[in-house]
Nucleic acid binder design. Structure first.
Length: 439
RNA sequence: CGGAGUGUGGCUCAGUCUGGUAGAGCACCGCGUUCGGGACGCGGGGGUCGCAGGUUCGAAUCCUGCCACUCCGACCA
């Protein structure tokens, strides 16, 4: 992409409404535009990152055996009356009436609809286990939206729903999602720790919130420091194998949010020098809730014994749009964002310090072509801004690499390569620089 | 939902107390000089001062009502 043809409205001033660093940086970097309280337009740069985060979530869900579909944002109220949640949900649900006076709602979640789809087609235990997911916009009419995309009213969420014949099988489905979440967040450069959460109606310990430690997090958390250094399962993990050792490793020590915090237990289980009290951002959560919805909505399958069984269900959410805020909270400095390579909107920024200078233009075009064909997604700054402004923009939007092309270096056959994360710069030949970036 | 604020050009803000021709910086357009970490000169475009009523010879400014947004708290399957 050429910056002169792109749409990147960066701001020098920080908009007054932004209180936390991720919100400020997203506005300043031209990623986001607020249209109403808690409702945002995703500008091109923000949209690119959103898509990359979404794709990582999708790949890890697919790897774990979940199957993607797409449900609508609007749902019929009658569906929610089947589970009893239409009246129970309260003011957070955005209710709409269509031209025929039918009551509808903008979905805050999809347990009812997925159960309706499941029961329409699935009659046999042989179809289980089944895990269906989608990545779709949700709306929850928060009383007080804040912190940009961290707590918006409209937000992009991945929600998966598992169906199993019995509780033991349901536990295996839960564990697959648990491991998939470890991998998902790790790939985005985040340390997300699963923490004990309020359990569903079935009790037990089958609910976890995955929390990224950050000073601006909304909840206080208490955990054993040793969680921070645990290994993440590799891409070759066998989801058909017994995953309980991994889940046990990630759950046997203390980690809890303040809602369920038990000081006595914390101090008994965790040596003082291993305790961390911090704040955290919830980026995902897993629930196992048994037959709550399958029974209420009469979604049964016939088992090997010939009897009708209500499938054991779980639901698994990831706040896709919130993740952008969490990533920035975890990875920025005083001048801008520092994107992890895996989610960066562009792989490298090429800075032409003297557009119109034949030699500079030529080197930039060569680099642009080579990086494009290598799939490194370059963003070429071919504008006539001042050099200082170009550097500031590149640092603000946080691309992993900057390739700086100026008349001084070009005369000597060199360019400058800068790594955003470390600030390290080296002067190299163009070929050596391209090789270092991976082109 | 309780409490507290703020609405003036794309952004940050002054002007409101004490009514009298709407301002600054940044951004934007033109010309020129510049050019390796947010340049400079000259010229220029852009605002029903959140909305509606009221008071007044005259309202961004005073009064009433409404709306939007922000912050603190409560809430957050």
């Amino acid at each position: 992409m050429r910056l002169s043809r792109y749409f990147l409205p960066v701001l020098k001033n920080t908009p007054a409404e932004a209180q936390i660093v991720s919100h400020r940086l997203m506005l300043r970097a031209g990623m986001l535009r607020q249209e109403a309280a808690g409702i945002y337009a995703w500008l091109p740069l923000g949209h690119r990152v959103l898509r990359k985060v979404e794709q990582i979530v999708r790949e890890e869900m697919d790897r774990a055996g979940a199957v993607e579909l797409l449900m609508p944002t609007l749902q019929l109220a009658d569906l929610w009356r089947e589970s009893g949640r239409y009246d129970a949900y309260g003011a957070e649900m955005l209710r709409i009436t269509d031209r025929h006076e039918r009551e509808m709602l903008y979905g805050p979640t999809n347990e009812e609809m997925i159960t309706e789809i499941f029961r329409a087609y699935t009659k046999s235990y042989k179809a289980l286990p089944l895990n269906l997911y989608h990545i779709q916009w949700k709306f929850r009419d928060e009383q007080r939206p804040r912190f940009g995309v961290m707590r918006g009213r409209e937000f992009l969420m991945k929600d998966a729903y598992s169906f199993d014949i019995d509780e033991a099988e349901g536990r295996k489905s839960y564990d697959r999602m648990f491991v998939a979440y470890l991998r998902t967040f790790s790939r985005m450069g985040l340390k997300a720790i699963p923490m004990r959460a309020e359990t569903g109606p079935i009790g037990g310990d089958l609910s976890h919130e995955f929390i990224v430690l950050a000073q601006t997090g909304e909840s206080a958390v208490f955990l054993d420091k040793r969680y921070l250094d645990l290994p993440i399962p590799g891409a070759d993990i066998d989801y058909q194998s017994d995953l309980t050792p991994i889940v046990d490793e990630w759950t046997h020590r203390y980690a809890a949010t303040e809602d369920v915090h038990d000081t006595a237990r914390y101090e008994a289980e965790t040596p003082e020098y291993q305790r961390i009290t911090a704040r955290g951002i919830e980026v995902g959560q897993t629930f196992f809730f048994g037959d709550k919805y399958s029974r209420a909505m009469n979604a049964s399958v016939q088992g090997p014994d010939g009897a009708e069984h209500f499938p054991q269900m779980g639901s698994y959410g990831v706040g896709v749009s919130r993740l952008l805020g969490a990533i920035i909270e975890a990875s920025h400095d005083e001048v801008g964002i520092i994107w992890p390579d895996t989610v960066a909107p562009f792989g490298v920024g090429i800075v032409n310090l003297r557009p119109g200078d034949a030699a500079c233009d030529s080197v930039c075009e060569s680099a642009y072509a080579a990086l494009t064909s290598a799939g490194r997604e370059p963003l070429l700054d071919d504008t006539d801004d001042r050099p200082g402004g170009k550097f500031a923009t590149m640092d603000l939007i946080g691309l992993p690499w900057q390739l700086i092309v100026g008349p001084r270096g070009v005369a000597e056959g060199t360019v400058e390569l800068k790594r955003r994360a470390t600030g390290e710069r080296q002067t190299l030949s163009l070929d050596a620089a391209l090789k270092a970036i991976g082109a």
